[in-house]
């Protein structure tokens, strides 16, 4: 074990001990924060997956990804508004239908949007200087934010509260408030991540994606269609981000055009934390960062949360640059 690893695990251990102490002293408050953290973390995990997959395959920090996430929430809010039968006051069958239709539609639209972005802004620059696609990624981020800004202006946008909520759908266990929404977020994210894992490990396309991430030239020689594989990666990343946006919208019920910027940075941090390019790592990293943010909000003060999260980011890279589970990026 290297010095860096030692330092890393020492910090993790200290954090765990401090948290354990808090858990013993104020168990219900601790559990409450845990619930919030898990829900946030689940969403970060969904967004982080897109960053990590794209970075793993073409080594690009896709700055537009956070905005794809937000756009998913915007599109979802618009579609859900069409379901006149659905109600925000009580959970009707119409709500269920609206959700069952909106989710896949949003996910597909976001996938299509991201494929278009890749086709227009990244693919032509695949052999250009390394910074060129980074700048177009930033440009695309501004463009998407610009579209949402043009669409609804600077104000917050309301997302219909279609999930079951209110008196019948929440409970207090041992002083810990848990609502249906909290459970929904975690379970939905878990299902999506599991589906992704099955897809990546089991399907032919998943295999092609892993091969391309390992060595693009060799994969091409083996007959893998690189363009299609990369496009598929963007598609899947955006599907997850779209779902994440929907879940975020349904959970918090308000969104703004620039939500994706901060969420994107945090999600990207999660991806690095888990080991960039590593899919289980991104999921785990998202959960850890979500929990960290919740604990920091509660015990240190929310104004310090950003400093804590990015401090962790720097710490991880200094002490253990491969992240929690090890990075997987193309070999040079």
């Amino acid at each position: 074990m290297s010095v860096g690893d030692l330092g890393f695990f020492l910090i993790v251990a200290i954090a765990l001990v401090l948290l354990a102490g808090e858990a013993v002293a104020h168990p219900s408050q601790f559990a409450q924060v845990l619930v919030f953290g898990l829900a946030d973390g689940a969403i970060y995990a969904l967004v982080a997956l897109g960053y990590t997959m794209v970075y793993g395959i073409i080594e690009l920090i896709n700055f537009a990804h956070g905005d794809v996430f937000t756009l998913g929430a915007y599109v979802g809010a618009t579609i859900m508004a069409f379901f006149a039968g659905a109600s925000e006051d009580s959970f009707l069958v119409a709500n269920l239908i609206a959700l069952l239709i909106t989710f896949p539609v949003v996910m597909l639209i976001m996938g299509a949007v991201n494929i278009t972005i890749e086709r227009v802004a990244y693919r032509p620059l695949r052999n250009a200087p390394r910074l060129a696609p980074l700048i177009t990624a930033i440009g695309m981020s501004f463009l998407l934010e610009g579209i949402m800004f043009l669409w609804h202006g600077p104000a917050t946008v309301h997302v219909p509260d279609l999930l079951p909520h209110g008196a019948g759908f929440q409970t207090t266990i041992g002083g810990v408030f848990i609502s249906f929404k909290d459970v929904f977020v975690v379970i939905a994210a878990a299902i999506l991540v599991t589906l992704l894992a099955i897809f990546i490990n089991g399907s032919k396309l998943g295999k092609a994606m892993r091969a391309t991430a390992q060595d693009r030239d060799a994969s091409q020689l083996m007959g893998i269609n690189i363009n299609r594989t990369i496009a598929a990666t963007f598609f899947i990343g955006a599907v997850l981000a779209g779902a994440g946006g929907m879940i975020w919208g349904l959970y918090f019920n308000t969104i703004t055009y620039n939500l994706g910027f901060r969420t994107g940075l945090v999600a990207f941090t999660s991806a690095v934390f888990g080991g960039i390019g590593n899919i289980p790592g991104a999921a785990l990293g998202g959960m850890v960062i979500g929990l960290t943010a919740a604990f920091s909000d509660n015990y240190i003060g929310s104004k310090w949360t950003q400093v804590v999260i990015f401090g962790i980011l720097i710490g991880v890279l200094v002490f253990r640059p491969t992240g929690l589970l090890g990075m997987r990026v193309p070999e040079k």
Partner: peptide, 20 residues
Amino acid sequence: RLQFLLYGLILVGMMLLRPQ
């Protein structure tokens, strides 16, 4: 409201036209 969008378009367009 268009400003953001235009700035993004300019960045993408310029980079595609002159990646160097």
